[in-house]
């Protein structure tokens, strides 16, 4: 019984943790990432949701983040990054590396996201 209660508690706890996980949406249109600069907090696991609005597939690729994920045309894909220390982590579209470029900027604790305007 104790084991069952503990299991339920762990499931609830993990659901809470999942619910609290930050999410960032990145759109891919005309082989460009929008936004090209993705700000995320330090030391937190973040879910990146990549929505490909082009008809061609694209591969989200980053050597710095060690991530590779194919996103089909007119489709979306999810991937997790982090927890990461503060810094800049470039990413690119493997199929259009000259145009599809961006970077994940991990902000130190307490630092605000710069105003885009």
């Amino acid at each position: 019984m104790l084991r069952l209660m503990l299991s339920v508690w762990l499931i609830v706890l993990s659901q809470d943790a999942l619910a609290a996980r930050p999410e960032v949406v990145v759109r891919l249109k005309d082989h460009l990432f929008h936004p090209a600069k993705v700000y995320v907090p330090a030391n937190k696991k973040v879910k990146l949701i990549i929505i490909n609005e082009d008809d061609d597939p694209e591969e989200f690729d980053s050597f710095a983040l060690n991530r590779e994920k194919v996103v089909f045309g007119q489709a979306k894909a999810n991937l997790f990054i982090g927890p990461l220390p503060p810094g800049r982590y470039p990413f690119f579209g493997q199929y259009h590396p000259t145009t599809a470029q961006g970077e994940v900027i991990v902000l130190p604790p307490g630092e605000e996201v710069p105003d885009a305007h």
């Binding site: 696991k45 879910k47 060690n66 991530r67 590779e68 994920k69 991937l79 997790f80 990054i81 982090g82 927890p83 990461l84 220390p85």
Partner: peptide, 13 residues
């Protein structure tokens, strides 16, 4: 890296 990508394993520095 694939398991880290799915969120199963946490990354470390």
């Amino acid at each position: 890296p694939l398991l880290q990508q799915t969120g199963v394993i946490d990354e470390s520095a």
